[in-house]
Design a protein around this nucleic acid. Structure first.
Lengths: 221, 221
DNA sequence: ATGATAATTTATCACTTGATCATTTCCGAT
DNA sequence: ATCGGAAATGATCAAGTGATAAATTATCAT
């Protein structure tokens, strides 16, 4: 049996309640929400927000912190490196987890909206992919195909671009569903498996031809 | 020699000038721009905007019309169908043209910002890809690989998803550059060629295994 | 040159919005 | 039960905002 609802919550509870509600509200309504609308939707007076948040900007910052936090599982990179398991299996497992993590209306919409407003906010998160996960994926596919990836700046850049092209398609599930409001398949698992199949098959086979593209990237403009 | 700059432009010229300026301005500043800022940045008085646009919303609608128009070359689909040319070549040519067309700050930012606000606006554009280009690409790759793509709703859906995953990576160049404000390679052509290589190689080879994934999509939840 | 016309601006209104503060309402320790 | 303090609200301010209308200024045909 729950305690009867208090009209006057404890400060900590109320702050969390406002924050949780605001995340959902702002995700749907957009960053140009007004404090009045937000307060009314939550059923509290507008000045109450200012008891818990110094101003509108501080509320927004805390929304970002809350949304961006805990979305990334630091274990993912370790699992991707586990060579006792075939790379296809590792990739499928990782991408299912990744897709499930990002396929959240609040996360996607606040991510895109905040990036549109101020790209700094998304930098830290993107760096994680860019710096560690992407090179890792390329390296592991190369290793399993028994190839040594070419070294050099252009080679690294091309590798990154190949993986970007693959990886962004999973983030794009979220964009399609929560930004474009388009249908996506009910069952994503077979799609993820098929895409991994196409990608790993294609990259393994075409990797020996990458030298051509790398040269083209190095060449003069 | 140009005519001296008039302080009082002809109505049609002024309207176009405001619209052109507003597109760039709104792309950078966001949909929550104010008419005062816009007018000041352009160097005219704020009420002047109302001589040419009934209200703020009408200006926005005309911005959308102008930005979304003429961005899609109806010839692309025809070129993609030309079987006298290898599918890799066709895809590379199409994707270079497509990437160049969408890699425009005003286009990308207004597309994303407007979709975030009201997904209806982007529907017509996405429908073009979805309904015609994507099935076409899949069909052409299958044809060149000498395969007959499986029929049925699940098969169609999977095919669409495979191509979505590939195609969105080119749109994503724009997202990375103009939304995330991240570097993208100076030379995109080799990247496009490499991605096409990986994709066509992978899909041709793995197409015979698609039946498994299709069954998984049909199966009960 | 000059006057008719169209383009543009200045002034202003009504309303919205973030923020503040005095006042009121509730809760729990005594 | 009651009283002190914390939680919440109502009233209100100042700045900003979309929109309108009257006044002003440039342009061009005559």
């Amino acid at each position: 049996m729950q305690k009867a609802v208090k009209k006057y919550l404890d400060a900590a509870d109320r702050e969390q309640q406002i924050l949780d509600f605001a995340i959902t509200y702002v995700a749907q309504r957009g960053l140009s929400f007004t404090t009045r609308e937000l307060a009314e939707a939550l059923g509290v007076s507008q000045p109450l927000l200012y008891r818990y948040f110094k101003n509108r900007d501080e509320l927004l910052r805390k929304i970002y912190d809350e949304v961006y936090l805990k979305r990334w599982d630091p274990n993912w990179n370790a699992q991707l490196s586990d060579r006792t398991i075939p790379i296809r299996t590792r990739l499928i497992r990782y991408l299912k987890a990744y897709t499930e993590a990002i396929l959240d209306e609040r996360w996607i919409r606040i991510f895109i909206a905040s990036a549109l407003e101020d790209p700094q906010i998304s930098k830290r998160y993107l760096g994680l992919l860019h710096e560690t996960t992407f090179p890792l994926i390329y390296r592991e596919i190369a290793a399993e195909a028994g190839m040594t990836p070419p070294a050099g700046a252009a080679a690294d850049e091309l590798a990154l671009e190949i993986v970007w092209g693959f990886h962004c398609s999973f983030f794009y599930f979220g964009v399609r569903k929560y930004i474009y409001r388009n249908r996506i398949p009910e069952k994503l698992d077979p799609v993820i498996e098929a895409r991994v199949d196409v990608f790993v098959t294609g990259l393994s086979e075409s990797m020996s031809r990458m030298g051509t593209y790398i040269s083209a990237m190095e060449g003069s403009k």
